[in-house]
C-alpha cells in the first residue's frame, strides 16, 4: 500500500501537467507551439541545465560518469535497433530514431526529479544532454540522408553545459545574478515541456497500430533491459542507478516526430510510434519507477 502511494506521488504531478496539455489540445483551443517551443528550447532548458548543474549537487566526475554510461546505452540501442528493424524489414532511416531516442527531457527530467530530488535531476540532465545532442545530430542526419552538423553545433545546450562545467571545474559558485536568472527561467521548462507534450499527444494520431506498438514496446523494453544491465555492470550509486534505469526506459521522443515532419519522412507512422510508446509507458511506468527506486528486492 505504501509503495503504491509512493509511486503515485511521483507520477501524479506528471499526469496532471501532461493532462492539462492533453485537455487543452483536445478542446481545440489554439496552442502556439512555436512560442512555447521557442522559449523552452532557447531559454528555459539551457537555463535549467546550467542552474541544476551549478547548484553543486554533482561533481564533474558524476557528470562524466552519467553522460558516459548513457552514451553506451545509446550505442547499444542503435546496434540492436538496427538489427531489429533489418530483421522486421522496417525502413531503418525513418524509424531508427524512434526506437533509439527517448523522451529524456519532457518526461525523463520530471520523473528523475520527483523520484530522486535535486540530485536525481542533475544526473538526469547529464544524460539528457547526451540524448538531445545525439537526437539532433543523428535524427536530422538520418532524416536528411547526410551528416548534418549545423543544428547540433547551433543548439544552445552544448555551450551551457560547457559554461556550467567551467564553474564546476574552478570550484566557484556563479554570481548570484546569474544563478537567480537561470533558476527562474529554468523553472519554466518542466511545466511547459509537459503541457506541450500533452498537447502534441492530443493532436497526433496512431497509424499502423501493430507496427507502432511493436516498435514502442521495443523502445521501452529494450531500453529498460539496457539500463538494468549497465547499472549492474558499472556498480553505480543508488540515485545514479535509478536515474539511469528511468532515463533508458522512457517512451519515444516527440522530437523524432518534429524532425520527421520537417523532412517529410513518414511522419504519420513516426507519430504513431511516439503515441503508442507513451501510452504503453502509462502501464510500464509504475513498474519502472519501482525497480529504479528499490531494485528487485
Amino acid at each position: 500500500m505504501f509503495i503504491l502511494l509512493e509511486i503515485a506521488t511521483i507520477i501524479a504531478p506528471l499526469f496532471v501537467m501532461a493532462g492539462i496539455g492533453f485537455v487543452w489540445g483536445r478542446s481545440g483551443r489554439p496552442f502556439n507551439t512555436n512560442t512555447i517551443g521557442g522559449l523552452v528550447v532557447n531559454f528555459a532548458v539551457p537555463c535549467l541545465i546550467f542552474s541544476t548543474l551549478t547548484r553543486l549537487q554533482v561533481s564533474i566526475s558524476d557528470f562524466a560518469t552519467a553522460a558516459g554510461i548513457f552514451s553506451i546505452a545509446v550505442a547499444l540501442n542503435i546496434f540492436f535497433s538496427t538489427l531489429l528493424l533489418r530483421i522486421s524489414r522496417i525502413e531503418i532511416g525513418a524509424f531508427l530514431p524512434t526506437t533509439v531516442f527517448a523522451n529524456n527531457g519532457n518526461m525523463g527530467l520530471p520523473l528523475c526529479f520527483f523520484a530522486f530530488g535535486e540530485k536525481g535531476l542533475a544526473l538526469g540532465i547529464s544524460m539528457f544532454v547526451v540524448s538531445a545532442t545525439a537526437n539532433f545530430f543523428l535524427g536530422i542526419s538520418f532524416a536528411s540522408r547526410r551528416l548534418v552538423l549545423r543544428e547540433t553545433v547551433l543548439a544552445p545546450h552544448i555551450y551551457v553545459v560547457l559554461a556550467a562545467l567551467y564553474f564546476l571545474f574552478i570550484g566557484v559558485d556563479p554570481p548570484s545574478w546569474l544563478s537567480n536568472t537561470t533558476r527562474i527561467l529554468g523553472g519554466m521548462s518542466i511545466p511547459l515541456m509537459l503541457i506541450a507534450l500533452g498537447v502534441s499527444l492530443a493532436r497526433l494520431e496512431v497509424r499502423k497500430v501493430f507496427q507502432s506498438l511493436y516498435l514502442g514496446s521495443f523502445r521501452i523494453g529494450f531500453g529498460f533491459c539496457a539500463g538494468l544491465v549497465l547499472a549492474w555492470a558499472f556498480d553505480l550509486s543508488a540515485a545514479a542507478r535509478g536515474v539511469l534505469i528511468l532515463q533508458c526506459a522512457m517512451p519515444s521522443a516527440v522530437l523524432n516526430y518534429i524532425i520527421a515532419a520537417r523532412f517529410g519522412r513518414k511522419e504519420d507512422e513516426v507519430a504513431g510510434v511516439v503515441v503508442a510508446s507513451t501510452i504503453l509507458s502509462l502501464a510500464t511506468l509504475p513498474i519502472i519507477i519501482y525497480v529504479a527506486i528499490h531494485g528487485f528486492t
Partner: peptide, 12 residues
C-alpha cells in the same frame, strides 16, 4: 509539488 512546478511559469 505539482502546484509548485506549475507556479514557476508565472514569474518568467
Amino acid at each position: 509539488d505539482t502546484t509548485w512546478l506549475l507556479g514557476a511559469i508565472a514569474i518568467p
